[in-house]
Amino acid sequence: MKITEGVKKYRSIITIVLALIGIVIMAYYDYCDTTCSYLKGDIFGIDIKFVGIAYMVVIIAFAVFRQTPVVRVLLAAGVGVEVHLYAFQVQNNGYCPFCLAFSVMLLLSFIINYEVPSAWRGNRSRMWLYFLGEVDFPMFKINKLPLLIFSLLGYLTILFTFSGSVTPVYGQTTGGVIPSLGTGQYKIVMFADYFCPPCRRIDTKAEPLLKELLNSGKVKIEFVDVPFHRATPIYAKYYLYAANADSGADNILRVRKTLFDAAQVKHIQKEDALIIYLNEQKILWKAMDEKSIFTKLSAIIKDNNIKSTPTCLIRYSAKEVKIFVDDIEIWNGLNALKAHISAGKR
C-alpha cells in the first residue's frame, strides 16, 4: 500500500524521468554508437526516431503541469502505436533493441499512471472495455472515457501513416560488376554505411590488416555500401565512379576513407557538395551506369539478411561462411582469418 501511495505521489516525476530516458535512447539510436541496425520507418516522411523524441517531450510538458488525464491519453495512444510496431518487427523478423527499450519506457510510464477504472465497480460486463483504464475530463463534462479508444486511435493512426522497412535496397535494374580487390580463395565482404560511426572505426582500424590479407594473394575483398542513411546511395555512386577510374587497392581504400570523412567529419549530404569535396581531395572518378551494380548490391544485402552495420562476411569455403557484426567482432574475425591463412590451413 505504501509503495502504491508513493508511486501516486511521485507519479509525475517518475513519468518525466522515464520520458527523458526514452529521449536519450532515441538520441543514442540516432547516433548509432555500436552497430547501425536497419529498422527504418517514418510517419508522413518524418523519421520515427524524431517522432518518438517529440512524443516524449509532449508527455514531459503535460507531466510537469500535472495534467495526468492528458498524459494517460497520450500513453494509451502510445500503447496502440507500439502494438503495431511490435507486430511490424515480428513480421519482418528484424528487431531494434533501441526501439524495444523505448517501448519499455512507454509501457512503464503507462503502468505508473494506471488506475483501476471505477466503471468496473458499476458494470463488470464492461471490464474488457475499460481494461486499459479510464479518463475524466470534467471541463468537457466527459467522465469514464475508456482509454482503449485512444489506444485504438493510436493503432489506426500508425497503421495508415507508418512507412517502414527492414532490408535496405537500391533502385533495381540489371547487369554490372561489383568492384573487388584480390582474387584469392577466401572471400571477405564488408557491409557498411558511410554515416555509421562504428563502420568508420573498423574501416580505419582494419585497413592495414586488409592490405596484409590482400598481399597474401589468398583473399578477395568486396565492399558493399548499405543504404541506411538517405544520402548513402549518392556516396555509393561515387565510390563506384572512383573504382571505375582506378580499381587498385590503394585507391579503393583511400576513396572509402575520404567518403567516410565526407559523411562524418564534413557532414555532406548533397551531391554537389560531395563532388566539390572529392575534387578537393584529388579523388579521380569516372561516371558509369551505377544502377546496374546497385541491383547486385541489393541482392547481396537481401540474400545475407543484412540488418545492421558494420557486418563482415568471411567465406572460407562454399560450406563454411562466417558472419561478424560490430567492429570488435569483425576485427577478431579478420585476425582469425589471418591466423588461418598463416597456419596454412585449407
Rank of each mutant, 00 (worst) to 15 (best):
K2P: 06
K2E: 08
T4H: 15
K8P: 01
R11S: 08
I13Y: 11
L18Q: 05
L18T: 08
I21R: 02
G22S: 05
V24K: 05
A27P: 07
Y31I: 10
Y31W: 13
D33L: 14
T35G: 05
S37R: 11
I43H: 13
F44T: 06
G45C: 14
I46L: 13
A54M: 10
V57A: 15
V57Y: 09
I59M: 10
I60L: 11
V71Q: 09
L74R: 00
L75D: 09
V81T: 14
V81Q: 04
V83S: 12
Y86D: 06
A87W: 09
V90I: 03
Q91A: 10
Q91G: 15
N93Y: 14
P97K: 07
C99K: 01
A101C: 10
M105Y: 04
I111N: 06
E115I: 04
V116L: 13
A119F: 03
A119W: 03
W120G: 06
W120V: 01
W120M: 08
S125T: 12
W128L: 09
G133E: 01
M139W: 00
M139Q: 08
F140K: 05
K141D: 08
K144S: 14
K144R: 15
F150H: 12
L152S: 13
L153F: 14
L153Q: 04
L159M: 07
F160T: 14
F160Q: 11
F160W: 13
G164Q: 13
V166M: 11
Y170T: 00
Q172V: 08
T173F: 06
T173G: 01
G175N: 05
I178K: 00
P179M: 06
T183D: 14
G184Q: 03
G184V: 01
Y186F: 14
M190Y: 13
F195V: 00
F195S: 07
C196S: 03
P197N: 06
P197F: 12
D203F: 13
D203R: 01
T204S: 10
K205L: 13
L210C: 00
K211H: 10
K211P: 09
E212C: 03
L213K: 08
L214N: 00
L214R: 04
K220H: 01
K220Q: 07
D225L: 12
I234N: 15
I234M: 09
Y235C: 05
K237D: 04
Y238S: 09
A245N: 05
A245C: 07
R254T: 15
V265W: 01
Q269W: 07
K270R: 10
K270P: 00
K270S: 05
D272Y: 06
A273K: 07
Q281R: 13
M288A: 02
E290N: 04
K291M: 11
K296W: 01
I301F: 02
I301E: 01
S308I: 00
S317R: 04
A318G: 10
A318D: 15
K319P: 00
K322S: 11
K322V: 10
K322I: 08
F324I: 03
V325W: 00
D326A: 07
I328A: 14
L334K: 02
L334E: 09
K338R: 11
K338G: 07
K338F: 12
A339F: 05
A339K: 15
S342C: 09
K345V: 05
